[in-house]
Amino acid sequence: MRIAISAVGKLKDAEERAIVERYAKRLNGAGKSLGLGPIEIREFPESRASGADERKRDEAARLLKDIGTGDVAVALDPLGRSLTSEAFAAYIRDTRDGGAKTCHFLIGGPDGHGDAVLTAASMKLSLGALTLPHGLARVVLAEQLYRAATILSGHPYHRA
């Protein structure tokens, strides 16, 4: 199963980008034998629409554009489910084993997700109760995807 992180906004911080790329590279290595990957990271510019609802609709349409039949969408949302790393790994395994071609993780813009994304998502996932800047959210997500692969393979990276 391929994995995609699609996010509104461009990572401007070189250090954050380097960390995301490091975990993506690790996931591509660790996930290969598990049928996970490669991971693709897509960035979309923030909408320039004047109102928040219009911006969310525009951004949602772009986030959903490449999701095809047989794909699964997960919307990162502060009101979503909060999972342990083990439960997240189980979700990844079950999604892969359920036949999903690609699992898309969707990160909205500063105004949040449009209704279309929230409706299309098979799960709304929270990375915690704290508000995270978008760059840090990508770092945490990329690390947790790598951690999920190590949990599924029995690698000692995850020692909880």
Rank of each mutant, 00 (worst) to 15 (best):
G70R: 13
V72S: 10
A73R: 07
V74E: 03
V74R: 04
L76C: 12
L76A: 10
D77P: 06
D77N: 12
P78Y: 09
P78M: 13
G80A: 07
R81E: 15
S82K: 15
L83A: 12
S85K: 06
E86Y: 05
A87T: 05
A89N: 04
A90Y: 00
Y91H: 11
I92R: 00
D94H: 01
D94P: 00
D97W: 00
G98N: 04
T102L: 01
C103D: 00
F105K: 05
L106D: 04
G108W: 09
G109S: 05
G109A: 04
G112D: 09
G112T: 07
H113K: 08
A116S: 15
L118I: 03
A120F: 02
A121Q: 08
S122P: 00
S122W: 02
M123E: 14
L125K: 06
L125Q: 08
A129G: 15
A129I: 10
L130M: 15
L130F: 14
T131W: 05
L132D: 04
G135E: 13
G135M: 11
A137C: 05
V140I: 14
V140E: 02
V140Y: 01
L141A: 10
E143C: 11
L145M: 11
Y146N: 11
Y146M: 12
A148F: 01
A148S: 13
T150W: 02
L152M: 13
S153R: 09
H155D: 14
H158Y: 13
H158V: 12
H158T: 11
